[in-house]
């Protein structure tokens, strides 16, 4: 158990406070106009003033993000297992996946609008598209890097491929899987917000776009802060689940290093 006021607990808070203080002081010292860079006080002012619409739109963004993320988990896990377990599928699909991941998702949103119209669906799909890739790569890596000795032990006992996958491959891939979730959830936010700024009539992205077109820059920054905050909360949830399920991977303290594609 960490102590309540240990260095590890305090450090991130202190770093955050320093960031805001430097920001505030710089804005005041250089007399920066509010429509270029609002100060933290102005930003938090906007956050309080527009609390109602911010909350409403943040909830919408959270919703699209989580739905897109859940689809990405299901799809990414299944595809990752398939690609990791079959060398042929790996060879067949890997170039496609890389190519697909290289496409900027902003470029996809107009197509999604064409197909599904403006609203929630393009945001969910964008969140999904942007976040499934690291899950696939990590799960596939976890399964494909199974120790050959272990495969030999099991195969010499007559284990079928499915046995090896169930008993060893998938459990072994779990730390890779959870590590990828932490990246995927933050990417899913990026996807949602990108889609909202292009093709939605609600959500934080939409709110920020509207605010900036009417030069309410503090509100834009308030939106950024809310997204960052939600991102941190979701990351922490993913990290807690990770530790809960794959504590063995860190072997009592020494943090395991896992590949994190994306």
């Amino acid at each position: 158990m960490k102590k309540l006021f240990s260095k590890a607990v305090l450090a991130p808070w202190i770093a955050t406070i320093i960031l805001f203080v430097v920001w505030e002081v710089s804005v005041r010292a250089f007399d920066v106009e509010e429509f270029i860079l609002p100060s933290p006080t102005a930003t938090f002012g906007a956050l309080i003033e527009f609390w109602g619409p911010i909350w409403h739109n943040a909830f919408q963004t959270l919703f699209t993000t989580v739905v897109g993320f859940l689809i990405a988990i299901a799809f990414g896990f299944v595809l990752g297992v398939a690609v990791g377990a079959s060398a042929l599928l790996y060879q067949a699909l890997y170039p496609l996946l890389i190519g697909f991941n290289s496409i900027p998702k902003v470029a996809v949103v107009p197509i999604l609008v064409l197909w599904f119209g403006i609203g929630t669906v393009p945001a969910i799909i964008t969140a999904f598209l942007i976040s499934f890739f690291p899950i696939v790569v990590n799960v596939a890596t976890g399964i494909a890097t199974l120790e050959p000795e272990l495969q030999e032990v099991l195969r010499s006992l007559g284990a079928r491929r499915l046995d090896i996958l169930r008993k060893v491959g998938i459990p072994r891939a779990m730390p890779y899987f959870f590590a990828s979730l932490k990246i995927a959830i933050t990417l899913a936010f990026v996807g949602s917000v990108i889609a909202e700024t292009v093709a939605a009539n609600s959500g934080i992205g939409h709110l920020m776009l509207q605010a900036s077109s009417s030069f309410r820059v503090p509100l834009v920054f308030a939106g950024l802060i809310v997204i960052a905050f939600l991102g941190i909360v979701m990351y922490v949830i993913a990290a807690v689940i990770e530790r809960r399920f794959t504590g063995w991977a860190t072997r009592g303290g020494a943090a395991g290093e896992y590949a994190t594609g994306g």
Partner: peptide, 18 residues
């Protein structure tokens, strides 16, 4: 094909950590 009954051990004990 694989004999299905053989016991094997290697230089690396490869235990499953979970």
């Amino acid at each position: 094909g694989p004999l299905k009954i053989v016991g094997m051990a290697f230089q690396n004990p490869v235990m499953l950590p979970w």
